[in-house]
């Protein structure tokens, strides 16, 4: 309801501002669909980046949360919308790279059938475990899992979630694809049972688990990125800890339906880059433990390549995952 009020207010101010604003893209508010519930990591990044992009575009970016089916409901809606530049979406690793292998009946083709705009942020993935698990480093943990896979329980936030996707990749690489997996509705409840020791380990984004690690209620084995995270300087990278092939990042990126006007794509790319260069916006993202994407990844081509790269990486593990 408030959204309509905003819309009316925006329309009114537009009418008052006269014809100068009405020319060219954008001449009305842009809807950015977030395919998850408000308050989650993707939503937060969309709101922070969208807030600054609105200033550059001179039009409000309205965030619309359309949750469901691991984010594919919202992305489907955005990718099948009119390609006029007024409907875009903030998706992530799961909805763009993992979705084709996860959801056989997917109604959009993230590899060739969308218009990438650019990466908006990346979040490192950590392998974390309950604090009283016997293994104290990644090597002994991996050895224990390979020796007695039946003794372990892994938690994830539901099929299609980042934690499911990244942990399925890990289990695939370790050769234990059938390891006992316990599904939760979201990271919060899963984390609760990890803290209380009901389950043994999970893979999740740094923003969800960093404070628990600092407080010592759970322990971290490794961060699956090239460099250590400044938020957790004591946690080794997977390369340092002896599992260099496990490299994955939970990125968020903006895309729209294929066939958008070039002017709209250029203006959105420009607004995204200005947002990510803005010190205040940058600080907000860094505070979350996020990584600011490189200049190359903030372009349609760069982002498109990231989608294809990670899809190729995830494909075998996801297709072999037990259903």
């Amino acid at each position: 309801m408030k959204k309509t009020v905003f819309g009316i207010a925006a329309a009114l101010s537009l009418a008052l501002a006269g014809t100068a604003v009405a020319q060219g893209y954008p001449n009305k508010p842009v809807t950015m669909i977030v395919p998850f519930a408000a308050g989650g990591p993707t939503d937060i990044i969309a709101r922070i980046v969208g807030d600054h992009m609105s200033k550059t575009l001179g039009q409000q970016i309205v965030i619309e949360n359309v949750a469901g089916a691991g984010g594919t409901t919202g992305i489907t809606r955005a990718m099948t919308a009119a390609p006029d530049g007024y409907t875009i979406a903030m998706g992530h690793l799961g909805t763009f790279s993992a979705a084709p292998a996860t959801y056989p009946g997917l109604k959009y083709d993230p590899l060739n059938g969308i218009q990438p705009i650019g990466l908006a942020g990346g979040t490192p993935i950590l392998i974390v475990a309950r604090k009283n698990l016997e293994a104290n480093d990644l090597k002994s943990f991996v050895a224990a899992i390979k020796a007695t896979p039946d003794k372990f329980n892994e938690a994830h936030a539901g099929l299609g979630s980042v934690s499911w996707t990244t942990c399925t990749l890990l289990k695939g690489q370790l050769g234990v694809p059938k390891l006992n997996a316990v599904a939760y509705r979201g990271t919060g409840p899963a984390l609760n049972d990890l803290v209380s020791g009901q389950i043994d380990f999970m893979c999740d984004q740094i923003v969800s688990v960093a404070e628990q690690i600092k407080a010592g209620t759970i322990k971290a084995f490794a961060v699956a990125s090239v460099q250590r995270s400044p938020a957790l300087p004591d946690v080794p990278t997977t390369t340092e800890a002896g599992l260099p092939e496990y490299q994955i990042e939970a990125w968020n990126g903006i895309a729209g339906p294929k066939g958008m006007p070039k002017e709209a794509v250029d203006k959105l790319v420009d607004a995204l880059n200005k947002a990510l260069n803005d010190e205040a916006t940058k600080k907000r993202l860094l505070d979350l433990g996020a990584v600011i994407p490189t200049a190359a990844d903030r372009t349609p081509d760069g982002f498109g390549a990231v989608i294809k790269r990670d899809a190729a990486k995830l494909d075998p593990a996801l297709k072999n995952a037990p259903r």
């Binding site: 937060i44 919060g188 609760n192 803290v195 628990q212 407080a215």
Partner: peptide
């Protein structure tokens, strides 16, 4: 549970987690 553990027990509390993180306070035991 939200303030002492940093774990939201329901959807509204999950949103509060989001609000806290947006303001640079990441909910947790600390």
């Amino acid at each position: 549970p939200l303030l002492t553990l940093g774990i939201p027990p329901n959807a509204v509390m999950a949103l509060m987690v989001g609000a806290m993180t947006i303001h640079g306070i990441i909910p947790g035991p600390q």
